[in-house]
């Protein structure tokens, strides 16, 4: 069954339409890489899929259920987890309090949430009483990413998770993405570094100017990448 399915989806900000009819499926236990030039609408697509932006036309299905119009909180409860690009933390809460916020979805107890997170990112354990806004850029990214570890989602939407992370951590994270997919999670991955994403992806989609221009295996899609980026940059 497809964990996430978009059919002819249109959406945008106010009167400006960004997605002009996008169709896309992400089956369970699969990593799909969503690629395309800056400004193609990738982040917008993830926002729509997580309920942050409403769809204006088309269908959004999560776990086979039609969920158009459900708000972000409801979709989160239904198992959709989006890690937003660049700012996935509450800056005026401490690290520990941020983790407490993650307990709103799923059924882990606060102590278990902390344990899992600090097991994966020991650095955060040393900083648990620090205000998250004063963490280093990479530490903030780790904290944001920790939510995907603890809410046990069905659909995971990752927006540029490697941004600002040391290579050694990026490698670890992508290993983690693979593990999560094996556990049955459907993962849609946006990444500027196409190679990194394609290495873990089962299939890939190119989005350009709000439309899907190509879908296929990573190898097939990679061939068309250069053209998409150069052509779509305007």
């Amino acid at each position: 069954m497809n964990a996430l399915e978009l059919i002819g989806l249109r959406a945008g900000y106010g009167s400006i339409e960004v997605l002009h009819g996008v169709s896309l499926v992400v089956p369970a236990a699969t990593v799909v890489a969503l690629l395309g030039p800056n400004g193609a609408g990738k982040s917008t697509l993830l926002k729509v899929a997580s309920g942050t932006i409403a769809t204006t036309d088309g269908c959004l299905h999560v776990g086979g259920v039609h969920v158009n119009g459900a708000d972000a909180a409801a979709l989160a409860q239904a198992g959709v987890c989006r890690i937003p690009e660049g700012r996935g933390i509450f800056p005026n809460l401490t690290v520990a309090e941020n983790l407490r916020m993650w307990t709103g979805v799923g059924d882990l107890r606060p102590a278990e949430v902390a344990e899992r997170t600090f097991g994966r990112f020991p650095r955060l354990g040393e900083r648990r009483a620090q205000l998250a806004g004063t963490l280093s850029g990479g530490e903030q990214q780790m904290l944001a990413m920790s939510r995907s570890l603890v809410v046990d989602p069905a659909v995971l939407l990752l927006d540029e998770i490697s941004m600002g992370l040391a290579p050694i951590i990026v490698a670890e994270l992508y290993e983690l993405v693979g593990t999560l997919a094996q556990q049955g999670i459907a993962i849609l991955l946006v990444e500027q570094f196409a190679q990194t994403a394609l290495a873990v992806a089962d299939s890939a989609v190119i989005l350009s100017q709000g439309r899907v221009t190509r879908t296929g295996t990573p190898a097939e899609v990679e061939e068309h990448l250069a053209a998409a980026y150069l052509g779509g940059a305007a």
């Binding site: 997580s50 309920g51 942050t52 708000d71 972000a72 909180a73 989160a76 409860q77 987890c81 989006r82 937003p84 700012r87 996935g88 933390i89 509450f90 800056p91 005026n92 809460l93 916020m101 993650w102 709103g104 979805v105 939510r147 809410v151």
Partner: peptide, 12 residues
């Protein structure tokens, strides 16, 4: 701090 993120974390 961030209502959008709060919603993503399952809080209305």
């Amino acid at each position: 701090d961030d209502p959008e993120l709060a919603a993503l974390a399952g809080t209305k």
